[in-house]
Design a protein around this nucleic acid. Structure first.
Lengths: 335, 335
DNA sequence: CTGAAAGCGCTAACAG
DNA sequence: CTGTTAGCGCTTTCAG
């Protein structure tokens, strides 16, 4: 930059302004500066700039599990929106551990990210992290998982509705003994469970004994949980699973037991991960609009980051959409 | 920092040194500084520090596709190693486009990352990007995909061996007409193809007419490619697929055609993505050690970044490991 | 429209 | 062991 100024016989300031096409600079000078800058292949030093502007154009994306393609898709959505605006995305993988999540967020704050998008693994009521966040004044958006007791921007599905939708579908397919492999004690897990209960109640159906078992996030836990369910008597004829990986594990267990999906047991997952279609039995699922979630979260966040005054939190809900594949299709559905 | 110094009646420098536990500072002073720093909840300003040290502790990870769980796993491996060393990881998703990759890398260079790990989508012989990289003096490690004509650090499998291993296995299982759904014109694609040819040659077998069809990266292309293969006459009885997603798509096509896997057509993929086990037919595959690749790359890179003088490029090869599941098991294998 | 002065928060180099 | 001086590359403020 100094070089450009010297070469052109103008001051540093002129160059600085020209580069950021600041208003008060003559068209002609600007051109000359830009030309010389290209010749020298000059790149503004982003760090020096940050130092004085207090903006890093870094955004933290905190996810519990990159391997779960739902989150990978969210990440893509976020990048698609934020990239063009000049932001870089720093991804942190918390492995579903609230403690690790806190550390990661703190590091990102030290790094002075301009904003954060978080799919939190904090248990309901664990609000400490968010107090830190609020104090820091760095804008953030929660995705996929609301956290009870936290007033914050949120983008995601209404989990109750998702659970109800999946369960209603099983009822419609003629299932009479519907079980649920529930997720962790987060908003997603409890919400989906609530939806499951709501749907059954509405149809005057009861939750069978031991019909709610606890899976966690992955296929192995789904497998284990299903094996438990297979022990119950009477055996369920339909299972709504917390998410697709869990459902995939569950299918494996059912088939191994020599039973058929969906004839003996119909199964529905959630998340519509991109390989749902390729599983042993193509998996019925509820789509949450993963990339839309990423994009909306990015939009919302960029508004907050751009705003000079803090904006009051908003909540954006995506609509869960049922996708019926073989794992739950027991009746010829008329389209 | 100024505050700490003032409160303690020492100079800025003393504080600065104490915080970085620089050698020449008295134990006592250091304690006092650290104590006060905790009281004030002081966080060193990382940007200001970068400005003078010329180190950002940022590492760019450039991947062609986050949705492919192979890369997600690599990312996790990288994070596991680099996180504890104080590096943050900036992930870029290039969508398999060389052009986008170049732009992303350039942005990362402007951002002054300390190093890069790249699974490149540059075609063989497309070396421009790497010339830029070399000129920038920023150390980088190529993973998974070597690029012909580029002397650089590399961590990954020998693709020839991988291809040969998979093909030999099909031969061993009694397949006599083995086809290949090949990948893109990158080192991985051409290497695996070469291995496939080598294995056939070694057994005096010929490549059937139109037995090499071009898939790309994903399941849809695998599906299409397989449908093409099904038209050939005689039909192949074994197919080695570029990677697991392609193989998953291929299986779908075979089953849809009313044929059986592996009885009619045996299938082997590559990559051992974590859901390989849950597919319509559990998929035989070749494991490349995804997380080991990530970890080794991280180790190698951190050595380069730590080193004061540029280190000469090294290549680290992981051993491909065959994993036999149902999609290719035609004989009772004696273990 | 252009420029001079001041400083962002920190550290390297050297002197005491 | 501690402190002084200088400066990283840029922008903000305000005066020409």
């Amino acid at each position: 930059m100094k070089d450009i100024a010297r070469d052109l016989g103008v001051s540093l300031m002129t160059v600085s302004k020209a580069l950021r096409n600041h208003s008060d600079i003559s068209q002609q000078t600007r051109e000359r500066v830009l030309k010389r800058m290209r010749e020298l292949n000059y790149q503004p030093d982003w760090i020096a700039r940050s130092m004085v502007t207090r903006r890093t154009y870094l955004v933290g994306l905190v996810l519990p599990d990159l391997m779960h393609s739902f989150f990978a898709e969210v990440a893509k959505g976020v990048a698609r929106k934020l990239g063009p605006l000049g932001y870089q995305i720093v991804i942190s993988n918390t492995e579903e551990e609230g403690e690790a999540e806190r550390r990661h967020v703190e590091v990102l704050l030290t790094r002075k990210v301009d904003g954060l998008i978080i799919a939190s693994a904090q248990r309901n009521g664990q609000v400490e992290l968010f107090e830190i966040l609020d104090r820091s004044k760095v804008p953030y958006v929660l995705i996929d998982r609301m956290v009870a007791g936290v007033e914050a921007n949120y983008v995601g599905v209404k989990d109750d509705d998702l659970g109800a939708l999946a369960t209603e579908h099983l009822i419609e397919q003629g299932c009479r003994r519907i079980a649920h492999i529930r997720g962790p004690a987060l908003a997603t897990g409890t919400g989906r469970l609530r939806g499951y209960r709501r749907a059954l109640a509405r149809h005057g159906m009861e939750v069978g004994p031991n019909y709610i078992v606890s899976g966690q996030y992955g296929d192995t836990t789904g497998y284990e949980a299903m094996r438990e369910l297979l022990q119950t008597n009477p055996r369920p004829d339909g299972v709504f699973c917390y998410n697709d990986p869990v459902a995939a594990g569950a299918i494996k267990a059912v088939l191994e037991a020599g039973l058929k999906v969906p004839e003996d047991i119909a199964i529905v997952g959630a998340g519509n991960v991109h390989y749902s279609d390729l599983l042993r039995v193509p998996l019925s699922t509820v789509d949450q609009g993963s990339s839309v979630i990423g994009e909306s979260a990015a939009d919302l966040l960029s508004q907050c980051m751009e705003a000079k005054a803090p904006v009051s939190p908003r909540r954006i809900f995506t609509t869960p959409r049922l996708i019926v594949r073989d794992s739950s299709r027991r009746k010829e559905t008329v389209v």
